[in-house]
Amino acid sequence: MKKLSKILEEQFNNYADIEIQDIYKLLYQSNFGCEHAVDQNSRHWLHQEYDKTVPSNGRKIIDIISPKDNIYRLNIAPYKFKGGDKDKLFDWFYSSSKINIGTQYEFRLLWDEFKMINQKEKYFEDKKVLSFEKIIRYHLPIMHHSYNYRQANEPSYRIVNRLTIDTYMQNICF
């Protein structure tokens, strides 16, 4: 188990220009997993993204993003750098997308926890958090990373469920 405060601290230490929608996205993924409508036909376009990503050892392969320790962001650049297999990655992603986790109610609790942490850490102004909260008060939309975050970090990852990769990743990640 990893505390949300620790997860956020790591994110702010390792990534630049994090906006509030990036945190929302992180919490959303942390709670709901990848939640994509992935089918085998997605393999092609996901591979295209994979092929474009430049291998690099600049960051960790795995970012743990869930306090329950069951959801990871698997960063493609270091994965490629260490010789990861793209078909295997797709398979993990595909399998992960079939695992239903998290509820909207749980997401709201997670968001409340984030707000409490934010009060202490002052990652964002309260006003900003409240305005954003109004946007997500009735529905939880799928959001992209903020422009600034994308520019600064070039995020390229797959959301994977721990269950699907633990056995495979022992050698490559840790």
Partner: peptide, 29 residues
């Protein structure tokens, strides 16, 4: 309608919270 009042001077209208959020983001950028 889902409306949130902010402090600037450019009005934004879009459909889909994700798209509107990206629009805000881009204008801010």
């Amino acid at each position: 309608l889902s409306y949130v009042e902010l402090e600037g001077n450019i009005g934004i209208i879009g459909n889909g919270a994700g798209l509107v959020m990206s629009t805000l983001d881009m204008v801010n950028h």
